[in-house]
């Protein structure tokens, strides 16, 4: 019997240890697993490396992890949006390390980590400061930068629908980084709007096959108190 459903958000993140690398799906607040992040924050896991497109705004999501001093390093493309006060505070104080990655390089590094590819040559960032120290090559007259896979210990995902096998369906543009992160982490945990029975998801609409997903938890399951 394969049943990846868990009854609580707390249980879903309970084995994430101090020092873990954790991917977090989402683009801004689209497709971001805010309740799993809150469960992780309440658990107080420390010294994490967070891999996500943004670094959070105001007091919510990734910003709350930064505020509570739980993040050692952040790997992202766009750390600073209006209201990213906690990233700025922690960075200015030298309390968080930043690895800035162009967005398409970030998603492709995550994708290849899950796809068993050892690297790729991209024209993005060739001749810029973000290619410094990296191997470059001219292929057919065009310059490329070698980028390596970016795996993680855990991925926190957000989807609209799941089934007990972990198949995921997303809402509109909410999929963004989630499908690649599902592939790239050793343990992938999805917070979903609703869990349906086996056979109730249209297989043509499944975006993330359940093979990549280890745990699913309904977002209303045992609500983590704020």
């Amino acid at each position: 019997m394969i049943d990846k459903r868990l009854g609580s958000l707390r249980e879903a993140v309970a084995d994430i240890p101090d020092g873990a690398s954790v991917m977090i799906g989402g683009f801004g607040n689209s497709g971001i697993p805010l309740r799993l992040i809150e469960a992780l924050r309440q658990q107080g896991t420390r010294d994490m490396t967070i891999i996500s497109n943004n670094a959070g705004v105001a007091e919510e999501g990734i910003a709350s992890l930064l505020r509570d001093g739980l993040v050692k390093k952040i790997v992202c493309s766009f750390p600073r949006s209006a209201g990213s006060v906690w990233f700025e505070k922690r960075f200015e104080a030298g309390e968080v390390e930043l690895e800035l990655v162009p967005q398409g390089t970030l998603s492709e590094r995550i994708r290849i980590a899950g796809a068993g590819i050892g690297g790729f040559f991209t024209p993005t960032a060739y001749g810029t400061a973000l290619a410094e120290g990296k191997e470059t090559r001219v292929i057919d007259g065009r310059g490329y930068v070698l980028e390596k896979p970016l795996p993680a210990d855990f991925a926190l995902l957000k989807a609209q629908l799941a089934d007990p096998w972990g198949n995921l369906i997303y809402d509109t543009a909410g999929r963004n980084f989630n499908p690649m992160m599902a592939m790239a982490a050793r343990v992938s945990i999805a917070e979903v709007h609703e869990i349906r029975e086996l056979g109730e998801l249209d297989p043509e609409r499944v975006v993330t096959p359940g093979i990549y997903v280890n745990r699913v938890v309904a977002q209303e399951a045992q609500h983590v108190p704020a």
Partner: peptide, 27 residues
């Protein structure tokens, strides 16, 4: 819709004929 935003994180809509895909495909 909180999930339906553009690159500037503003709420947008989808035209008839529009579609969605993941970020790796987008890039």
């Amino acid at each position: 819709n909180i999930n339906l935003i553009n690159a500037g994180k503003q709420y947008v809509t989808l035209l008839a004929g529009g579609c969605y895909f993941d970020n790796a495909e987008s890039f």
